[in-house]
Design a protein around this nucleic acid. Structure first.
Lengths: 348, 348
DNA sequence: ATTAGCACTCGAATCGGCAGAGTGCTAATT
DNA sequence: AATTAGCACTCTGCCGATTCGAGTGCTAAT
């Protein structure tokens, strides 16, 4: 709607004003007026001057007024400029650091628990919703398959990946699962499945196996089908949402909160939201998210790396009016520590 | 506050009126007036008569008025009387039955999936929140322990119970976990742990074991600690909440919905709520639940039995103004089918 | 370039009045 | 004795008018 926001050069004072409007609005939730801005930011110019500047920021597209005679609030572009250029990228707060360290310490050693814990901590810290995904990537390998007999016709199939993720499923066959059946299955698994990337163990791949198997493969089929299902669910990347009820306390959403929670509770679109982030760290503000349900929310996605390769994510979802300046360092610190601890836990 | 509600005998007409008020109020959410009641229920008496009867039901404590000149709404005792004596206990609706059957069919054979699915289906069907617990009881035994090497110092410990519940945890030791360590561990497990009820495998019990172990048990400790932790988490009964965002759509809760969701998101009190239900089927209305956060909600807890002994639960939580008449048959049908399917899946 | 001053706009809160739904009571009816 | 018609009464929700205050944009002076 206005000129190139990216390359535009703002005067020092405009930057200062924009930053202060954003920060004050984040703090109070009320539109910021010229008068209020001056004494909150301790500026030594008159309100008229500020009004002039604000007016220009307005027509540049960084600020807007909810109605003619109200203060200003940041537009989506305003937040964007703030996050990109104005925000102080400070270190994580000492207290926060302590809280995170103490919180994860109870879960060191177990990736799954660790991730759950990190979600919980971050939800409490940010008062937003958090989403975590397990560390699954293209190179996540099937490390081990274990078949635990449960009955004559059924077994518990357990699959362990190179990232310490374990998936299991009860599997029932029409025919008796004898030790020799199991032995044959282990043979097949060892040759064709163990060590392969989980993403490659598709139903189609299982199909090709049946040709390679000598003798009757009917007895193998239920077992192999279970394996492919499990391998597939590894790729599900185990997305979990937490703290969503936090979002209800933000007056920003008004009655739209219901629709938002509804949206977040479905895992397919949420997966898409998380996966469409670029790079190791990504802040997406308002309609930068392609889903209209998120148009007044921001999503911060931060990736953690395990052994430098496979990656999971920890994300924070909240209103565009979220406290970027403290949330961003927190989530960065959290992903860093989670990545390191999981790597360490999986160390040979 | 008024005379003995339990033993009180209501005239046929009073019963009819109470039932109709409850049902109409459940349907519309609006206080029910004498006029509206007559033409909704097709009664052939005048509104004045109905008013007189309502007045008496009012002073008996079954109905109340939100304000002097409004229609009547049921009190908690009104709902109670309705559920106990007036409600038609009809069979589950044919369509619902189909939906449930179709829904669970995709998860037959895997208890965990089945339970998750049942939660989801029931949440959609009832538009309320649902809670499920896994089938864990006093007699849930440790069936098998599997130790999968992950690295030199770490293993994935997998524990399978007699109910098909599988729990796992990464476990890291300070000392090298050699095959001989594992062999020794399996020996201990076989003798002292396998076949025992999960609830008995406490840290204290592990303590007593260390005395029984010959040679250095330091290498065993991390492994045994992991086992006890897993056994303990079996008793956690794996409570999961679903469909909580459904509750937001009920205007009944108004702004209290936030607090309710907050309450439900914490698992300790929720566990308590579920566990304090008596018998195989229990409806608790409003303040019959001891938590004040539930004073305008009803909780329906239904137990399913696996092999007749261990039991898990499926529950529905919603406003006191919920559609008992259709929800109750649905949840009963659901628990019945879930119990049967799990029993079948675990059959020898 | 900055600022003081002023007219103007718009939302939020307050208030009275009005319409409607529903009640309880009384007196008439069956 | 039970039912009903009729009526006065009460309370809520809604509409419109009014006021109040915060904040703006513009103009003219510094």
């Amino acid at each position: 709607m206005s000129e190139q926001k990216e390359n535009v050069q703002l005067s020092e004072r405009k930057k200062q004003i924009l930053a202060n409007v954003v920060e004050l609005y984040i703090k109070t939730g009320e539109p910021v007026g010229s008068k209020g801005l001056i004494n909150a930011a301790g500026m030594s110019v008159s309100s008229a001057t500020v009004r002039n500047e604000m007016n220009e920021l307005d027509s540049m597209g960084f600020l807007e007024q909810p109605h003619t005679s109200a203060g200003r609030i940041p537009t989506q572009e305003g937040y964007r400029y703030y996050v990109d250029h104005l925000m102080k990228t400070r270190e994580v707060d000492e207290l926060t650091k302590r809280l995170i360290d103490a919180g994860v310490s109870s879960a060191v050693g177990d990736p799954e628990k660790l991730i759950a814990k990190s979600r919980e901590i971050l939800a409490n810290l940010t008062k937003c919703a958090t989403v975590s995904t397990a560390p699954v990537g293209e190179m996540t390998l099937i490390r081990k398959i274990e078949v635990v007999p449960v009955g004559v016709y059924s077994v518990m199939m357990v699959l362990l990946t190179s990232n310490g993720i374990l998936k299991s499923r009860l599997c029932r066959s029409d025919t008796e699962i004898t030790p020799s059946v199991l032995e044959k299955f282990y043979g097949i698994a060892k040759t064709f499945i163990i060590g392969k990337p989980a993403v490659e163990i598709t139903p189609a791949y299982i199909q090709t196996l049946t040709a390679a198997i000598e003798g009757d493969y009917f007895t193998m089929l239920p077992l192999l089908a279970a394996v492919s299902e499990l391998a597939d669910s590894v790729g599900d990347s185990r997305l979990v949402l937490g703290g969503s009820s936090n979002l209800l306390s933000f007056k920003d959403y008004g009655s739209g909160a219901v629709a938002l929670l509804e949206f977040l509770s479905k895992s397919e679109p949420l997966t898409d939201v998380i996966n469409s982030s670029k790079g190791a760290f990504d802040v997406r503000i308002g309609s930068e998210n392609k889903y209209k349900q998120l148009e007044s929310s921001s999503v911060i996605v931060s990736k953690y790396s395990v052994n430098g390769d496979d990656t999971g994510t920890i994300s924070v979802i909240g209103p565009t009016r979220m406290d970027y300046e403290t949330i961003i360092p927190s989530i960065k610190y959290m992903t860093d520590i989670v990545g390191r601890l999981i790597t360490q836990a999986l160390e040979e």
